[in-house]
Every structure is written in C-alpha cells, then in structure tokens.
Design a protein around this nucleic acid. Structure first.
Lengths: 338, 338
DNA sequence: CTGAAAGCGCTTACAG
DNA sequence: CTGAAAGCGCTTACAG
C-alpha cells in the first residue's frame, strides 16, 4: 500500500501539499492539484485510516463503536442494518460488540472500543444505572443510547414508546373479549421490560380488569424463558386465554411450547408479542405483534451520533418513535369470540 | 486517557521501559517492573490500539475485518456469534461489513477495512470469481473464506458439504414417498446454490426419479423470491407434493405463501429447508431442515485466521463440516403416507 | 501557494 | 538492564 510520501515523491511536491489536496484545502494551486491527483490515481493511493485516527482531529474516516446486548434478537439486527446503511453513506466503519447481557463482556468491549479511539458510541445500556456507559458520557465521549436510557444523566436517546405499545397490545386483546391476559416479561432489570409491564397494567386498569400477579411471570429475556414461562402459565389451574410476550425471543419460545402441546392459536390460547419480525407471516397463524421501527431507530441513532461528534455542545435529544400494532391472526377476531 | 509517556513519568523510567513491561519483555528488572505496574494501575492506563496498529508488527490487539453478504440471514448471525466469541477471547475486535450481495458495497467495505489496517479478513465471497477477494489474497493479506470458496486460487475455507446436505434432504423426502419434489434455489451465481442443486439432482437420479426442470425455480436468495416462487410452483398444473428450499430466507418466504393459501403442511405440501433456525420448533408444524453449524463455522474461521496471521506460510486448509438433518414435522411421516 | 517540522502513541534496534 | 532515537502515516500551525 502506498503512502502519502510515495504520492508526494511521484508528484514532486511535499507530503503537506498532498494532504491538502486530499482534504480539499482550497489554497492549493490548480496545476499542483492536478499533478497530485494524477499521482494518487496511478498509485491507487488511499489514505491510511489508522494514521488519520492517531491525529487528534479529523473530519472523515470515522469509526463507530456499537455495543449490542444480543445479536440473536432480530430487533437488534434491524437496528444494526439501519446504523450500517447510514454509516456506509458517511464513509464510516462500525466495530461491533455483542455483550450478551454480560457486564464483564460489556466492560471489556468498551475498553477495546475506547482504545481503538472510535469517534463515538452507539450503545444499548444493560440497565438504567449502567456505570460503564455513564462514565463514558461523563468523560465526554460522544454516545447515543438506543432502546434503553440512563438515569440521572443527560444523553441522546432513540427508542420507542414502550408503555404505549404494550397498552395498545393489551387493549387489542381486551376488545377481542380477553379478560384473563398473561404477561411473560423480560429480565426485570432492563428498563424496557418495566415500561412494557406498565403499559400492560395501565390497560387492564383502564378497562377495570383486576391485575393478577399470578399470571405475570418473568425470568430472562431469552428463548428458553419464553418456552418455560409459557408452560408455567398454561399449567395454571386457571390459565390465561391470551399471552402477551415481552419481546421477540420470548414470543418464539412461547410459540414452541404452544405448538408442542398441540394448542390452537387463537382458539385455545391467543398470543401477541412485543417486537415484530419480517417473517411474521411465515408463522402459522401469522403473528399479531407490536412493531418497533428497528431500522429507523438505527439510522436515527447514527445521525444523532454524527451530529454529536460535530457539535459536542448541542442539546441532548430524545427521540421516541411510535410503535405500530400489526394485527394478524394470533389473537382471533371479534366476530368469532362474540 | 493517559499515555505511555504519563506512565513513564510517574514511574520515573523511559517509555521504552514501560513498553517492555507491557509486552512482558523478560529483561526488565523486577523492581522496575513493579514500579511501572503501579503507575499503570494508578493511571488506569490502557494502550492505544490505534498507535499499536500503526507500527508494522504487533502481537496482540488485533482488529479483524468481517465481510458478510446478508446479516438478515440467521445463518450468518450464528457465524458472527462464533467469530465474535473467539475474537473476544483473543482480545480482538471485529469490524463488520454487510454488503447485501452488492458488489459496489463489497468493494467499498474492502477498501475501508484495508485502510483500517485490519490484521486479517473473514469473508463470504459474493461468488467464486470474486475479483476483489482474489486480489486481497494475492496481495498477501490473511484471509479465510466462509461458506463459499474461490476458484483458481488457494485460500483457507470453512464451509459445509452442501451437496451431501441437499442429498440427505431429498432422500428423506423420497423415503417418505414423495416423487414430485420442487426445488426453490437461491441466486445461481452463488456457489452454494449450485452445490445444493447438485445434491438435489443426485438424489433424484439415484432413486430413478426423472428431473423435471419445470419444478426447479430460481431467482434471488431472499424472502420475496421464496414467497413468489412457491406461489409459482403451487399454481402449476401438476404441482409438487414437496418443496426443498435452498436457504433460510427462501424457506420463510415459501412458508408465508403456503400459510396464506391455507394449505396444510405436510398433508397438502411438504417442505424441507436448507439452514436450520433456533426457533424451528416455533413454526407450526416444526420445520424439518438441514442444519449447518454456523457457530462452529465462525469459530473455526477465526481460529484459522489467527493461525494464518501468525504463520502466513502454513498450508491452506479446507474445513468441510457435515450438515445434520433435523427431522421435525414438515415432511410428514412414513406411516401416514403409506 | 508550498514546505519543513512537530507531534499523535506506540515499538524496537542500537548503544551503553 | 535501561534509555535515546527513529519511524509507522498522517495533519496542521508556522514560515516564507
């Protein structure tokens, strides 16, 4: 790979001049510029991003650090796609860290990313008090949070109105005459879990349905928990007629249990999930779900991050997207139940 | 963030010495080492990976470039997980490029990764002749290919026996008395597509079933193609009784069409897919599929890459994993059909 | 308009 | 056993 020096030699100018034309500094004379451009072309020169990054300031060639709790969750792959498309358009590369909801791993990745001098971070904090992320923000690194915010500290945030989304889901179920609605929540340390639970409770209250703690169950936010907690719910003496699952993975797990028992959806048990998937129609019956715009969330987060890098002093932004209730067939239809 | 210089000053030694203890150079005197260690601890010093990378040689702090055709495909997320876990254990970070089967984007990412001075590449070439990847190999960069090889050039490769996997799938169908088996293949420019097609044809031949080109259909390797091609197959005057789909996305798409038409699986139409997913049991009925060990593939690729970086001259390795036929319920059972 | 020089944070061959 | 110095490939303030 050729260097600035090589280009300079070939063009018969100094490295400073070459650097100037690369950074489109207006001062350089037209003829010089042409000579340099030609040299660049014949050497197929392209700047070394590592060297650029070692300098304190730079305008382009960014590297973005991404800290994701679980890459197996399709919601996050949508987010990643959004980030990546926008990054690509901005000549930025992204370093990815998947910490699997493991704080030790989160810390290690954070350290690696810091020492890679990334220009900024996009992270989903493991919880509201996440000290590592807080430290990052305090230390003045550009960071934007996705999906989950941070308490007691100002930070850019892009997420969804979880409470409203859950409320809509439960309301939908209620209008379909369900009154005994179970809720499989995610890990209760994760802020979104609590917001969705709040939406669930709010809907029940509003429609004067008593909240029964027996049918609100919780463990981790993963597939196995979904499967096991669904089994628990179905084994109850007075089982729910509908289940609201707190995320993608939980939904899929619950579905396994329901299928395994040969239960019919929605006749035997209705199900509505938080998080939509692009293959919701491949499920039988198609899944009714609360859709988060993952791609848009990623894209917006990347935009905010670039802004933040450019103007560290701009006010903190909090972008709350609306969810969309994707009504398909897993909750039944009004006619049927009436 | 503190630098080598800061540590050196605090410890009262030169930066060279600090660097030596960091790189556990045996020569440094015990007392000096202790002083330096303390300084490192009090300053919470951690080396700048960018500066390290700017130096030509280094032993740790690697950066790995990953070029993936489609992050929406669950197979690749398994691969990524495998890569990432092994990378993490080796203090390596991974920069990810998702090129969506778009050659322009592939080229751009490759350029970015090169100028980030990554220590090596793990890539799934867009096809066997992929000139960019070939160039990379010729230029002496450490690269290991996954899923798809390269023609006319020696390169480390980790993949699966696609032909055998497809053969097994078709044989399974045949033993279940299916004789009219449709095949929705992926993009025919992708090597794996052709290998799977070869397995399909081999099985039919071996069991003396005529190959009917009418029921071998192909477009892209994505969801929409799966949905549309399944519709095409089902609309045929003499439609197949079973469909073999060439990958994950194709399977999901076909499932949507089958569900939409209210067809029963496996009674009305049997389906077997290449690629398993962790939520295959959440499908109704559970999907019979050819499983590729994605996680292991990723892990192995990362191992090979590290070896390659350490000894660029070692012989080229070609690791072919076996697939596993995951028999569930989407193809019916022998008893039923007999 | 252009060049020489300093410096970003490291590592390592060379002296001593 | 340790330090001074060169150099990796850039950018930019300072001269001219």
């Amino acid at each position: 790979m050729s260097s600035l020096k090589n280009v300079a030699d070939l063009a018969g100018v100094s490295v400073a001049t070459v650097s100037r034309v690369l950074n489109s500094d207006e001062v350089v004379k037209y003829e010089t510029k042409v000579k340099v451009m030609n040299a660049i072309k014949t050497l197929k020169y392209s700047p070394n991003r590592v060297a650029q990054r070692l300098r304190t300031t730079r305008k382009s060639s960014r590297l973005i650090g991404l800290l994701i709790p679980d890459i197996q969750n399709p919601f996050y792959v949508d987010v990643i796609r959004g980030i990546e498309v926008f990054a690509y358009a901005n000549n930025a590369a992204v370093v990815i860290g998947n910490f699997s909801q493991d704080e030790k791993k989160e810390k290690l990745y954070l350290d690696i990313l810091k020492s890679e001098s990334v220009d900024g971070f996009i992270v989903a904090p493991s919880n509201e008090k996440d000290i590592y992320i807080k430290e990052l923000v305090k230390d003045g690194f550009p960071v934007v949070c996705i999906d989950r915010g941070l308490s007691d500290i100002e930070v850019d945030l892009v997420k969804v109105d979880n409470q409203k989304g859950a409320f809509n889901a439960i309301e939908h179920l209620i209008k379909l005459q369900h009154t005994r609605i179970g809720h499989i929540t995610g890990n209760q340390l994760i802020p979104t879990t609590m917001e969705r639970l709040a939406g669930y409770e709010q809907a029940l209250k509003q429609y004067n349905i008593a909240i029964d703690p027996e049918i609100i169950v919780s463990r981790e936010s993963d597939y196995e928990s979904g499967a096991e907690l669904a089994a628990y719910l179905l084994d109850l003496e007075n089982p729910p007629t509908a289940i609201f699952t707190g995320n993608n993975l939980l939904t899929l797990g619950a579905l396994e249990t329901i299928n395994k028992r040969g239960l019919k959806i929605p006749e035997d048990i209705a199900i509505i999930g938080f998080d939509d998937v692009y293959w919701a129609n491949s499920l039988n019956p198609p899944l009714t779900a609360v859709r988060q715009p993952g791609f848009e969330i990623g894209k917006r987060a990347m935009e905010l991050l670039i802004q933040r890098i450019l103007s560290p002093e701009r006010e903190v932004a909090s972008i709350i997207y609306k969810t969309e209730l994707m009504i398909r067939k897993s909750c039944g239809s009004k006619e049927k139940r009436l």
